[in-house]
Simulated scan of single mutants.
Amino acid sequence: METSITIRNSKMLGQLIRDTRKQQGLNLETLAGLCGLSIRFLSELENGRETCGFGRVMRVLDALGIDLIAQPLGES
């Protein structure tokens, strides 16, 4: 079953990433190895830091199997 979640800010995205990582039984070290990023970066991302680079965020989403779908506000 696919679930769609509306992400409005970096904190919400970080929470989605953290929840998905934990559901998959991954710790930060394992996820860091899967996507080639540092544990520090992943921790900052999960905590909603707004300055995380988009390309690196996309690598994390890809490693977790999360698709990013954007649509204009007001469309459902």
Results as ranks from 00 to 15, higher is better:
residue 40 R to E: 02
residue 37 L to Q: 06
residue 69 I to E: 15
residue 74 G to Q: 01
residue 13 L to Y: 10
residue 37 L to Y: 04
residue 74 G to E: 05
residue 62 D to K: 09
residue 53 G to E: 12
residue 18 R to E: 14
residue 4 S to A: 14
residue 35 C to V: 02
residue 51 T to C: 02
residue 41 F to C: 02
residue 67 D to C: 03
residue 17 I to A: 01
residue 36 G to C: 04
residue 76 S to R: 05
residue 45 L to C: 05
residue 28 L to D: 07
residue 58 M to K: 06
residue 4 S to L: 15
residue 5 I to S: 13
residue 63 A to W: 07
residue 71 Q to A: 13
residue 68 L to Q: 02
residue 22 K to Q: 15
residue 2 E to A: 13
residue 23 Q to K: 15
residue 46 E to T: 00
residue 24 Q to G: 02
residue 27 N to Q: 07
residue 64 L to C: 08
residue 29 E to P: 08
residue 37 L to I: 02
residue 67 D to R: 02
residue 19 D to F: 01
residue 67 D to V: 00
residue 13 L to S: 06
residue 13 L to Q: 13
residue 72 P to H: 13
residue 46 E to A: 01
residue 65 G to A: 00
residue 5 I to W: 13
residue 29 E to T: 11
residue 58 M to P: 09
residue 9 N to P: 15
residue 57 V to D: 08
residue 47 N to H: 10
residue 38 S to N: 04
residue 11 K to A: 12
residue 19 D to Y: 04
residue 4 S to R: 13
residue 60 V to T: 05
residue 47 N to P: 03
residue 76 S to E: 15
residue 47 N to G: 09
residue 61 L to G: 08
residue 32 A to Y: 11
residue 70 A to Y: 11
residue 40 R to L: 01
residue 38 S to K: 04
residue 74 G to A: 00
residue 40 R to D: 04
residue 76 S to D: 14
residue 74 G to D: 07
residue 10 S to Y: 11
residue 61 L to I: 00
residue 35 C to S: 06
residue 12 M to G: 11
residue 5 I to H: 15
residue 58 M to A: 08
residue 31 L to D: 06
residue 42 L to K: 04
residue 11 K to C: 06
residue 13 L to K: 09
residue 41 F to T: 03
residue 20 T to Y: 09
residue 38 S to Y: 07
residue 60 V to D: 04
residue 15 Q to W: 02
residue 55 G to F: 07
residue 59 R to F: 00
residue 35 C to M: 02
residue 53 G to D: 10
residue 26 L to W: 13
residue 51 T to E: 07
residue 34 L to C: 01
residue 64 L to S: 09
residue 62 D to V: 00
residue 71 Q to M: 12
residue 41 F to S: 03
residue 2 E to G: 06
residue 1 M to A: 15
residue 30 T to M: 04
residue 54 F to C: 07
residue 47 N to R: 09
residue 10 S to A: 07
residue 10 S to V: 01
residue 61 L to E: 08
residue 36 G to M: 02
residue 12 M to D: 15
residue 22 K to C: 06
residue 17 I to Q: 14
residue 47 N to K: 10
residue 2 E to C: 03
residue 21 R to A: 07
residue 42 L to Y: 04
residue 22 K to D: 11
residue 6 T to E: 15
residue 9 N to C: 09
residue 69 I to T: 12
residue 57 V to G: 02
residue 4 S to I: 06
residue 63 A to C: 05
residue 50 E to I: 01
residue 6 T to G: 04
residue 54 F to I: 11
residue 39 I to N: 06
residue 28 L to S: 11
residue 65 G to F: 00
residue 69 I to D: 15
residue 13 L to R: 13
residue 37 L to D: 03
residue 67 D to S: 13
residue 76 S to I: 01
residue 9 N to A: 02
residue 1 M to L: 12
residue 21 R to G: 10
residue 54 F to A: 06
residue 5 I to Y: 14
residue 55 G to K: 04
